[in-house]
C-alpha cells in the first residue's frame, strides 16, 4: 500500500517483480541497481541460497527525486520463482502497489509462465487484490535467446487484459527501465 507521509513529504510505493523461476527478476533489479546513481539508491538486499536462487526476496530501495514537492521512493521486491516457495511469495505481495510480471520468452518455459501468472492471480486474490485492478505491466524477457516465442504469440497467451508490455534482455538492460517507468506511471497517476 502506498504510504504518504505529509509530515516528511514522502510517497513510498511497493513494486513487486513476479514470474517463474530463472526468468530474470533478480537480474532486472541488479541492472537497475548498477545504473542508478549512488545517491538515489540504497543497499540491494538479496536473500538467496548458496547457488544464488532467491530464497525469500530481493529488495532495492530507490529514491528518484521529487514530484510536486514530495520525495518519491520506490521499494522494489522480487519473489522467489521456484514453485515450492509459494508461502514466501504470498507474504511479499502484502501491501503491493504495482506488479511487474517477468515472462521467460523461451519456448520451453511457456508452461512455467502460465503457471506463475495463474499463481500470481490466486495469491493476489488471497490478499484481497484483483490483478485486473492493480497497476500491472508485463515484460517478455530473454529476447536475445535463439528459441524464443514470437512476441505476438506471447501477447496473445499472457497479456489477455492488454496491459503495457515490453520486450527485454535484462542481462544487458534492454527494456528494464521502460518496464519500471511504465509501472511507476500506473502506480502514481
Amino acid at each position: 500500500m502506498s504510504f504518504i507521509n505529509y509530515s516528511s513529504r514522502e510517497i513510498n510505493c511497493k513494486i513487486v517483480y513476479y514470474g517463474p523461476g530463472l526468468c530474470g527478476k533478480t537480474t532486472n533489479l541488479q541492472f537497475i541497481y548498477q545504473k542508478t546513481s549512488p545517491e538515489a539508491k540504497g543497499k540491494m538486499i538479496s536473500l538467496a541460497t548458496e547457488t544464488e536462487r532467491t530464497l525469500f526476496f530481493d529488495f532495492l530501495p530507490l529514491s528518484l527525486g521529487e514530484i510536486r514537492g514530495f520525495k518519491t521512493r520506490f521499494h522494489l521486491y522480487t519473489v522467489p520463482g521456484q514453485v515450492f516457495y509459494d508461502a514466501s511469495r504470498k507474504l511479499i505481495l502484502k501491501g503491493v502497489d504495482g506488479v511487474v510480471f517477468v515472462a521467460d520468452s523461451q519456448m520451453e518455459r511457456m508452461e512455467a509462465n502460465f503457471e506463475s501468472l495463474e499463481n500470481l492471480r490466486v495469491n493476489l486474490a488471497e490478499q484481497g487484490y484483483n490483478l485486473d485492478k492493480l497497476p500491472y505491466v508485463l515484460q517478455y524477457n530473454k529476447r536475445d535467446l535463439p528459441n524464443v516465442v514470437p512476441v505476438d504469440e506471447l501477447r496473445q497467451y499472457l497479456n489477455t487484459t492488454n496491459v503495457p508490455d515490453f520486450e527485454a534482455v535484462a542481462t544487458t538492460g534492454e527494456g528494464v527501465f521502460d518496464t519500471l517507468k511504465a509501472v511507476a506511471k500506473l502506480v502514481l497517476t
Binding site: I67, R68, L180, A184, K185, T189
Partner: peptide
Amino acid sequence: SIFAEITDDDIDNLFND
C-alpha cells in the same frame, strides 16, 4: 489525494535525472 495532481511528465522527469 496528492495522486490526483501527478502527471506522466512528472514521472518521465524522475527517470531523466
